[in-house]
Amino acid sequence: MSLKTQLRGTGVALVTPFKKDLSVDFDALGKVIDAMIAGGVEYLITLGTTGETPTLEKQEKKDIVTYTFEKVAGRVPVVVGVGGNNTAEVIKDLSYFPLEKATAVLSAAPYYNKPSQEGIFQHYKAVAEASPKPIILYNVPGRTGRNMSAATTVRLAHEVANVAGMKEASGDMVQCMEILRDKPDHFLVVSGDDALAMAQIACGMDGVISVAANAYPKQFSDMVRAALNSDMATAKKLNDPLLKAYDLMFAENNPSGVKAFMFEQGLIQNEVRLPVVPLSSGLHDAVKKYLSK
């Protein structure tokens, strides 16, 4: 079965809940996983950027992956985030993490070293050849400092057998349409921008890997399903009230924004690890005000 069939709809990039002492709160993580599945999301992503992976130790990451598979217990597909800016290290990580039960690996483009398009291509080619699971490319230039062009994405999709999909978060609608025009039929393309997801599905994307769905699993996944069924009137009705939530979530930092929502909903503690800090009090008050409506 292709990823396009398995991962159509809403995937949630899970937060990593922390206790007051900043250790991983596995009880809260279990509660979040159950809430996502009860809300109707199609699949989960563990160790995404939203999970604060830059500040997790390697053993913590392994423990989170193991726990997530145990808790999900096959109810929905799970995608594991394995990326980095040292290609050799990413390849080692692919054999370090327990990926037997993973549906795919989501791998963010190398950050900070700003490779050329050829460098990005060769990085992903090496990673895909080493991966026991299909690779989903992740283009997020706002975080990596380098955009992966439509031409590079399409070249990888056509030339590298184990590259099976793409999370596109450039925010460039023309680039998105070029990828959708030129990709192979079987190739999964999902949005990485909550606020643009509805419009990008209208352009032909297969769904979204979402941050906002951590706080709104049902409303968000219902919106995505309506859009995928070409019921844009329903999708718009569900999406319009969330536009303000998207603004609040990303105003200062991800995942501080979505964690503030989830804290107010009683799902997790409002804890993040430095250098990320919780929302400023004024913005947190705006979140409370939004939720009270």
Results as ranks from 00 to 15, higher is better:
G204W: 06
K31F: 07
E129L: 07
V15K: 01
G40D: 04
P217T: 04
D182V: 00
A245D: 02
Y216R: 04
V189A: 08
L196D: 09
K31Q: 13
M223S: 11
P241T: 10
R181T: 14
P132W: 08
E89V: 15
D222Q: 14
K244E: 15
S95N: 12
R8V: 10
E118Q: 13
G40V: 09
A13V: 14
T234L: 14
P184R: 03
N214L: 01
F220V: 06
E42Y: 02
N85K: 06
M249L: 13
N86Y: 10
A195T: 09
N214H: 05
N162Q: 12
P141C: 07
A202D: 09
Y216F: 15
L47E: 02
V41Q: 09
L283E: 05
V32C: 12
G30S: 11
S116Q: 02
H123I: 00
G282I: 12
V140K: 04
F250I: 11
E57L: 12
L56C: 04
K92I: 13
S116I: 01
D182W: 01
V174Y: 03
N139E: 07
E100W: 04
H158C: 00
S116D: 02
Y112C: 06
L22F: 07
E159Q: 13
V258D: 05
S2L: 14
L248C: 05
K289I: 04
M198Q: 15
L56W: 10
V189T: 10
K114D: 01
A260E: 08
L267C: 00
I268P: 06
A151S: 07
M249K: 02
G165A: 08
K101D: 15
G282F: 11
D247C: 09
M166W: 06
D93E: 13
T144S: 12
M177W: 00
M1L: 11
Q122M: 09
V65S: 06
F263P: 01
N162G: 12
L188Y: 04
R75M: 05
V82I: 15
T10A: 13
G51H: 08
D194E: 08
P77A: 10
A157P: 12
K244Q: 15
I33W: 07
M232I: 11
D93T: 00
E89K: 08
G11M: 04
E178Y: 07
V224T: 11
I33K: 03
T50Y: 05
M177H: 11
D27K: 13
L291A: 08
G266Y: 08
A164L: 05
G257I: 02
V105F: 04
D206Y: 10
N85Y: 08
T144V: 12
Q122E: 12
N229F: 00
K218W: 03
